[in-house]
């Protein structure tokens, strides 16, 4: 076989993984738009103190409930108007992106990491461990999710951090079930057996052979729950169990402004729009991500 190796020609350099990813991702226009919006959101969150014209908690008592600049009575000093305490809406929205982003990232990371590991274990574990894990997850799932989060926050004490922990725990079972279901179907396949014949140990089988084949639905679920996490954190804030005033968290802002909905449309519309646009962008991006990461959709 020595002469064979001598004649093996080198193939042309393969495109880098990132460039290949981008090639497939960019075919989905919605995903690209989503990515741009998401990037704007990330930049907002990262440079919030530089971008915001005022301190988000500073109260301008002379400008209470001032409408946006383009409406009668508005001024360019407060482009999106002010809230009932005279705080600048734009500054609060920009600062609020930080909290939302933070909530989304932390909740998704905690829930995905925990859920995937528990799901993998349960898919590979002996039957009684699997049954135990799944019944515990069923119990968590049988509670209305917001109610469970509320109970957890009530036990832990109301704060944004505790709200995030509570939401992560509530989200966990979805990932566990999703991962376990894919693991069980993937495990049956011959490529897993052949990895075993090649001598792969349990850890390698779990994380290198099976896990990458289960990722597509998990990524989509992660993108979706990023937005759900933002919504749930907002709901908890609304009930006084999440971010505490005067934190400019979008959900808390919505809740605070609820009574002015008829008098001053901008105090509820802008935080709501911010949530809507962010959630939509993340969902679109999640879709494109799945398309790009799934080799079955690639062409040669």
């Amino acid at each position: 076989m020595a002469e064979l190796s001598a004649t093996t020609p080198k193939t042309e350099d393969r495109p880098s993984a990132l460039r290949e990813f981008w090639f497939y991702f960019s075919e989905n226009r919605g995903a690209v738009i989503g990515l741009y919006v998401f990037m704007a959101f990330v930049i907002c969150a990262a440079f919030a103190p530089l971008l915001a014209p005022y301190d988000p908690t500073e109260q301008f008592r002379d400008h209470i409930l001032q409408p946006p600049a383009w409406q009668e009575g508005g001024s360019w000093a407060f482009p999106l108007g002010t809230d009932p305490l005279g705080r600048d809406m734009l500054s609060r929205l920009i600062m609020g992106s930080r909290y939302s982003f933070f909530v989304g990232i932390v909740v998704v990371c905690v829930a995905v990491t925990g859920g995937v590991i528990i799901g993998l274990l349960s898919g590979f574990a002996p039957k009684w461990v699997d049954t135990l894990i799944m019944r515990v997850m069923d119990i968590i799932l049988s509670f209305p999710s917001l109610l469970l989060a509320l109970v957890l926050v009530a036990i832990l004490g109301p704060s944004l951090t505790n709200a995030m922990i509570a939401i992560a725990i509530v989200f966990q079972p979805h990932y566990v079930r999703l991962t376990r279901a894919s693991v069980l179907s993937e495990r049956q396949k011959d490529y897993v057996t052949s990895a075993r014949v090649a001598g792969a140990g349990k850890a390698r089988l779990m994380f290198k052979t099976v896990l990458p084949n289960c990722l597509a639905p998990i990524i989509v679920q992660a993108a979706l729950s990023f937005s759900t996490a933002i919504l749930d954190a907002a709901a908890l804030g609304f009930l006084g169990m999440g971010a505490q005033p005067p934190t400019p968290e979008w959900g808390t802002m919505l809740a605070e402004a609820r009574e002015f909905i008829l008098r001053a449309w901008w105090v509820v519309t802008f935080p709501g729009l911010a949530i809507l646009v962010t959630v939509l962008a993340i969902n679109l991006m999640g879709d494109g991500l799945r398309d790009a990461l799934d080799p079955k959709l690639k062409r040669s």
């Binding site: 011959d190 490529y191 057996t193 052949s194 079955k296």
Partner: peptide, 29 residues
């Protein structure tokens, strides 16, 4: 001892390139 399976559509990991698939037994053993 090594094995070749019946169904070539199920016996190759869809997430690995051919090079990785071939190298895996060497990486492990």
């Amino acid at each position: 001892v090594q094995i070749v399976f019946q169904d070539p559509y199920g016996s190759l990991n869809p997430r690995q390139r051919i090079g990785q698939i071939l190298q895996e037994p060497l990486i492990i053993n």
